[in-house]
Design a protein around this nucleic acid. Structure first.
Lengths: 228, 228
DNA sequence: ACTGATTACATTGTCGACAATATACGTCTT
DNA sequence: AAGACGTATATTGTCGACAATGTAATCAGT
């Protein structure tokens, strides 16, 4: 297990990561109740460990806990996803602004290199980019902001929720090529140290992405999509 | 104790609120170690309760915990405060934008009424406004956004940290009257449902506030200020 | 006297048991 | 038969004890 989650030192850590993964991947369905005793037998740890893991998931907004009643996995609603994207828009917009100011030349160079590999990947297999590449790009800019508050809020909080939506609603859309162009423009603005433009482009990028997802949620023609 | 924290039902709740207050108010100094056994005797609860409280404080970024070593209250640094204000700028900017869209007419009316009382208060005793009034104003706009993610991030996370800085660095500045004017303009923009302007004014308002605080931190002429 | 290892201590992590609370069921009353 | 009350059960909250880890002191060797 320590091979799977190298950063996890304590048992509660591992359980937290495992539980989060199982919820995000949909193995534990959205809205379902999290019984402490049940989970403690399932993951072969004490209830105290499970409780700590659940508490940490609560502060990520992945589960909701009520005193003396119990914890449930959050329900996935269109409104919830929109709220998430509004927060993303503001935070990642600021991240792009700060990245334009604080990223080192080397980091920017690496970012450009990443876009190059994406360019070739997009041409061959179109699915890859959406999955990992997009996350990679955003991740680097977030880290480039050098703002620890911003970084933890996004990477340890919001992103897992976003991924939960993505996975469970089966988002793998046709926005691949256009998103690539947007990424390129954002990277350019950062390279030019144009904070204002970097923020604006990032906000628009996320806004477009939100609109794209909203359309998909409201026009359920794809039968392969998992149900809400 | 339940009279002090009415929202706290469980013992861990009360301990969490009490501990947070004691840290924010500076009773437990910044950077100090949080011994579980020590705190459990001090607050007359079991170590499990203390652990849960500490974990919750960790996710608020008020304390930092290292596995097998322990938890410490965060250190207050100028850089940390700046990071906080950058996050505030982006999140509260978005909150103002959403408030301009989503606040009810009644809520806006109440907001205006609040500003009226502030106006009279500012003329008489100049200290009050900074303390509670400013928080009140921002709080209403945050709630007015109707975005639960945004609301919890700000009111349960960032705001307590900001207050910790404010209290412990003794911020009670001469920005009272100018801040009042800014508040008025923001409220006006919200009343006019001008999302763009509301966001912009809010961002500037927080930016000014940040600059004001930076100046104070870098020009330590006031001897009454508590030391870092 | 200084460095290294070893041992003793203190602190955190984990566990099973007990207490308190909420839910579900059955009974009694109208 | 429907509703209210009380009990029974299951689940969460809390606790003290034990295990594992980190830290500091002690001692040996050079």
């Amino acid at each position: 297990m320590s091979l799977v989650f190298p950063m996890a030192v304590t048992s509660a850590d591992k359980t937290f990561y495992q539980l989060r993964q199982d919820i995000v991947e949909g193995l534990i369905p959205a809205g379902s109740k999290l019984s402490e005793t049940e989970l403690s037998t399932k993951y072969a740890v004490s209830r105290a460990v499970i409780r700590e893991a659940i508490n940490r998931l609560t502060s990520c907004h992945i589960v909701e806990r009520k005193a003396n009643i119990g914890a449930r996995v959050v329900e996935l609603t269109p409104e919830g996803l929109i709220e998430l994207y509004q927060v993303r828009e503001s935070l990642e917009g600021m991240a792009a602004r700060l990245a334009a100011k604080n990223m080192t030349e080397l980091e920017i160079k690496d970012l450009m290199a990443l876009l190059d590999t994406h360019f070739t990947t997009v041409e061959s297999e179109k699915t890859y980019y959406q999955e990992a590449g997009d996350v990679d790009f955003h991740y680097r800019i977030i880290m480039g902001s050098k703002n620890t508050q911003l970084i933890t809020l996004l990477t340890e909080g919001i992103y897992h929720l976003v991924r939960m939506y993505r996975v469970q609603l089966g988002m793998a859309g046709p926005r691949v090529t256009t998103a690539f162009a947007e990424h390129t423009n954002i990277a350019q603005a950062i390279q030019n140290r144009d904070e204002e433009l970097a923020e604006m482009l990032m906000r628009r990028h996320i806004l477009y992405s939100k609109n794209n997802i909203e359309n998909k949620l409201l026009t359920p023609t794809d039968t392969t999509r998992k149900s809400l």
